[in-house]
Design a protein around this nucleic acid. Structure first.
Lengths: 234, 234
DNA sequence: GTCGACATTATTGTCGACAATAACGCTTCT
DNA sequence: AGAAGCGTTATTGTCGACAATAATGTCGAC
């Protein structure tokens, strides 16, 4: 479903396709190099990535679809500024979608797919060990997307792409520490339950996992506290 | 949030903006004038609506975001062909999102908003009485979107736009009769509970309402039965 | 007659140039 | 000094022309 043509290019070369550029910006947001409220000028981005403005425009609409940027007519795009309430909405819905994914997945889940999933978690461990932030973020989101893809449910996969993106943004905006909490241990525990064909336990592990991530965030108290300085001053 | 500039134009004149054209195509799909699998050629649409191909392109990406069309690279766009399983996924998620909308809405719901909602239901009744299919479809979806908008939750609103579109497509694809079942009576019942501030009952009414719509569909048995003839032959 | 290679057509993808709009700075008046 | 009006600049929106790709039709070899 995703652009996997030339994984080499996506890893080494400068991003040139719409998907590659969108991923790069997504990572920058998740790494907090791009903060909520920051302006994203089309010409600037076109210059940076060495592509036409038209292509940047496609990137921006894709990013808006995934909730990472907000565009206003004739005014341009900024990195989205999610509120704490919105963050709670997203986690709430995500729990439901993820549970549905598991329910759909557990029906037709063969040994090969399970191996791929365990292999993915192994990659997560490597990234954690080497402290490769960018890879950690990509793989953490990728795990949940992989589940949705294996479930063979296009609609749910689309939902998950959206929700994973938004979760990255929320995590970037509201976490205080630098540790990334969508970790391999909980993923592996989930896989064990899937391997045993125990849907109930798998779903419970998933919900627990997501609540763990949510609880690490500073969503309490004043919802506006964690937002960009810009709004506070203007 | 939606294009409301010149409601007159949107009602009388030929659609020219991206939103207007997208809405028109959405209605055509919901009315079964455009069937799943039908090809949507850019040049053709540009000719029909008298706009540039670039604009049609924007329309198609918007429609794809809402699950109404599916585009393949270098191959063009067709009206999406949802499976019965996908339909069940969509209804499942929609129930959760709608309940969340109500939970968020019931906090800050004043008399004015309630009046607007009742007025909306009144319009639904008029459309039903005059058997204006197009208006019935617009208003039925509009009611649920209105709830989300009043809830002041952008994320949930975006979800609902997506889900309402997809539900329209599903309904068009899987219903056998011509009656449209997202009716004013159940909407009004829901409003009564909201007026009383009873979230539980409101949510229950919503779930019941959605299950009612879902149960009118022919999702049982062979999931591929209701799909386009095209797939059956190839 | 059927299959494959090639040419032709149809359709989508990309880009750069221009138009429309909003943001900024300057001047002027009170 | 502050504010309103106006011209300038910066930025986004739109379009038509061209390139790239896939679908279709045609011809020839066997």
């Amino acid at each position: 479903m995703k652009s996997q043509g030339n994984a080499v290019r996506s890893a080494q070369m400068a991003p040139t396709t719409v998907d590659e550029i969108a991923e790069r910006i997504w990572l920058s947001i998740a790494e907090r190099r791009l903060r909520p409220g920051m302006r994203l000028k089309e010409a600037e981005l076109a210059e940076i990535f060495g592509v036409s403005r038209a292509r940047i425009r496609q990137v921006l609409t894709a990013l808006e679809r995934d909730g990472l940027v907000k565009t206003e007519a004739n005014k341009g795009a900024i990195v989205a500024e999610p509120s704490a309430e919105e963050a709670r909405d997203i986690f709430h819905i995500r729990r439901e979608v993820e549970q549905r994914v598991l329910a759909r997945l557990i029906g037709h889940l063969d040994a090969e797919k399970l191996l791929d999933l365990f292999a993915h978690v192994a990659k997560e461990r490597v990234a954690n060990a080497t402290n490769d932030q960018r890879e950690i973020i990509k793989l953490s989101g990728g795990f949940h997307l992989m589940l949705a893809e294996m479930a063979g449910a296009d609609f749910l996969w689309g939902m998950m792409r959206d929700l994973v993106s938004r979760t990255s943004l929320i995590t970037a905006a509201f976490r205080d520490s630098d540790k990334y909490n969508c970790g391999p241990d909980e993923h592996e525990e989930l896989l064990m339950h899937l391997k045993n064909g125990d849907l109930q336990k798998a779903q419970h592990a998933m919900v627990h996992h997501l609540e763990h991530v949510e609880n690490e965030l500073k969503l309490s108290g004043n919802p506006e506290l964690a937002r960009s300085l810009k709004d506070a001053l203007l």
